[in-house]
Design a protein around this nucleic acid. Sequence first.
DNA 1: TTTAGGG
DNA 2: CCCTAAA
Length: 667
Amino acid sequence: MVRLDYGFNGYQVPPIPRATRSARGRGNIRKKSDSNEMCAFDLLTTVAGKLLLEGKSTLNSSGKDRSVVVKYTADPVKEDEDTSLKENKGFFISPIVSEAPVVNHCLSKSTDTLSGPASVITSSDCSEKLSSGERFVNGESKVENGNCSTKAEQEADFSSCTLGADSKKQMKIDLSNDAKISTNKRDAICSSEFPDLWDRKPSMLVALDNTVKLSLSTDPDPFGSFPVIRNDVQLANKDDDEKSCGSIQPSPRNKAFRPAPRVGDWRMRMLRDDEGHVNVDSETRHVYQNRKNGYTAERSQRDFPIKKRKLYYCNSFSNSDGGSSDGISSSPTKDLNRDTSGYSLASSGARAAAATSISKGARASFRSSDSHVKLKIKSFRVPELFVEIPENSTIGSLKRTVMEAVTAILGSSLHIGVVFQGKKVRDDSKTLFQAGISHDDKLDALGFTLEPNPSRASQPLGPEGRSCVLPCETCQPLTRCSPAPAVIPNGIQRGTYNVFPDHHPGTNLSNFIESDHDSAPSSPDASLERNTADSRALVPVAAMDAVALAVVPMRKPKRSETAQRRIRRPFSVSEVEALVQAVEKLGTGRWRDVKMRAFDIAKHRTCVDLKDKWKTLVHTARISPQQRRGEPVPQELLDRVLIAHAYWSQQQARQQMKHQSETRLLL
DNA sequence: TTTAGGG
DNA sequence: CCCTAAA
């Protein structure tokens, strides 16, 4: 080891022979993975639980203030079952600490705007434009038997709603502030009003209704014994990717309401509910098994989202026939079906409820006098996603994995599809009026779908190539049940898919990583702690929303194997800092070492990424500050970049000179 | 697989 | 970020 005095104090010049280095490095890696901490509870094969994204959009570039929280609740009642530990696990993406933006329900006071129970507001509801003169007030709303939809009473603002009046096991959830939802057996919310909407065959999801339960503190059997993935994602697509509102408020403490900064913001909440089901579980479980030992956590997680295809999402619908949109609307209901009695019964009950809520939700749409069609998308379902993670992974890695799974899906592989009166509306240039979407009475025939980005449609399916694809046809039937109510922002007419800009807000995972890096259950966990209770409270809400949920996830059956482009993850300042420091020490050209040194935990940062980043950093440092874009990097760091770059460049040159002279001598 | 570069 | 040629 030689220490150079030149330039930097800690420079090491001893480029270890490649072979040696590699060997050493690999050894280290192995060692590390072997020493992974064991989790207190087994996460076993899959991440079964609910994914709940709340608060600011995960898509926001300001992804820093969110964290993934893992919630685990032991279920005493089922403790005797080996599945008990697998239940009640939930994942939440929540705003970190006070950053939590949010208002539980951004319901406008306008009587024109209707909202379903636990409805989520989208865009304009919160936009200044629409909300101007309006207030989001906490009120109370009650949904009673057979009436999950909006009624006069719901026209009032509320941050809470009550479902199901009578029931022994009444569940109450604090949505926020003082909001509460209490609900009980499915019957309470089931309505027979729109049975016709559900005369399709039950899907697997429906079947699941019997086993998937709402996870409430009073509920002994929250999720049945099936892995359930529930997520509730809020997407925001704003011009500036700023903060958003209209998210469910998990924490009562967060009372501050942040109005969306811009008009025309388009945000929607994606909500996905219990999708797991027995078959899926068993069939996919093996997928999660690790192939090799050494190929554990680190590996699987690293490859997770994109290319390695360990992450894939699909519909759990059996899509047997008659296309079912069920997945969506039914899911929420499951939770409400406390009664596991009869499958059909439960199913029908669920359906009824869903139908009701939907149809009414649709009615909520209205046409304002100013020729604007106002819709409210209560929620969107996110295609099911599976996560593979070794059971000996740390909670932190689990969080990251889930976060990546979610962001990978939301950030790069979805776009919006519009379904109106059973048909997909493909012509983006057509106006709402031309499409007939402006008629109030037809709004309930309007639905939105989240579709995989065509260019990256093909996703790895099950291990055996088990298809998880949901036929496009399925979307048809969905229409009716997907009255995604939402206020339509100005931009919607232009083309819905714009809703998901490609540059998805830098889902910045670095936070997690960093936090994890710090190994201090700091901020994220702290927020977690706080939100835990609240998160739990949210569950019901999600369920509710799901009921009203209208969008059907669907996936194009086939598509070229085009590899999916990785989502963009801008380097955070701290990452840059780490990179700079590592390069100062190791020099350029040793990216693998740099990676191991500074980004060992950041699975998504490959040595190539680091190399590229350094390249751009050097470039950035050379251009004028005015020309720089993105999150500003402290000048101090840029200076170091230049210095280090100059130093190592020179070093490299010298090395070459030396080499040349040596060969010359030999000759 | 890692580097190094171009795109 | 991606893709590749080289090593």
